[in-house]
Design a protein around this nucleic acid. Structure first.
Length: 137
DNA sequence: GACATGACTACTG
DNA sequence: CCAGTAGCCATGT
């Protein structure tokens, strides 16, 4: 579903663009994306954008730079804790698998949580997450 | 239209 | 370290 307000649409596009800027084999957090788009206090909306990320053009409508799960590496976006929340049965697995497919080493938590080492794959061109300092070691 | 929920994060006690 | 709170937007009932 596309946003109703143009401002909201701009926000969506900004998020997708920021996500596309994530280099291959690296990951970042929702908070960082929100920060890049100028909304450091709206990490939730970032998740909403990815959640509503449309599917890749199946009919070949490559006329406009539309955002879809094919050109937006939503998989490289995880929470600030460096782990993937069990949003759904198989959802986290899909993201973890996608990251591994890029060469990102995904660890497994005791509760089945997928952990990613920010210190190794964290992509933070602007600043470093307080967690990164803690994750070290 | 209003309330509750969700792929989140930082601060406070 | 764990629990509660404030902030934004979209979706479902």
């Amino acid at each position: 579903m596309a946003p109703r307000s143009e401002e909201a649409w701009a926000w969506f596009a900004a998020v997708y663009q920021a996500v596309q800027e994530i280099p291959h084999g690296h990951v970042t957090s929702y908070g960082h994306i929100a920060r890049l788009v100028g909304r450091p206090e709206c990490p939730r909306q970032v998740g909403v954008c990815l959640k509503h990320l449309p599917s890749p053009s199946a009919e070949g409508s490559e006329q406009d730079p539309e955002w879809h799960s094919g050109n937006v590496p939503w998989q490289r976006v995880i929470n600030s804790k460096g782990c993937i929340s069990p949003r759904g049965p198989g959802g986290a697995e899909r993201q973890a698998a996608a990251l591994r497919a890029e060469g990102v080493e995904v660890t497994r938590g005791h509760l089945g949580e997928y952990f990613i080492d920010f210190s190794a794959y964290g992509w933070f061109p602007d600043m470093l997450p307080s967690e990164a300092a803690d994750v070290e070691g």
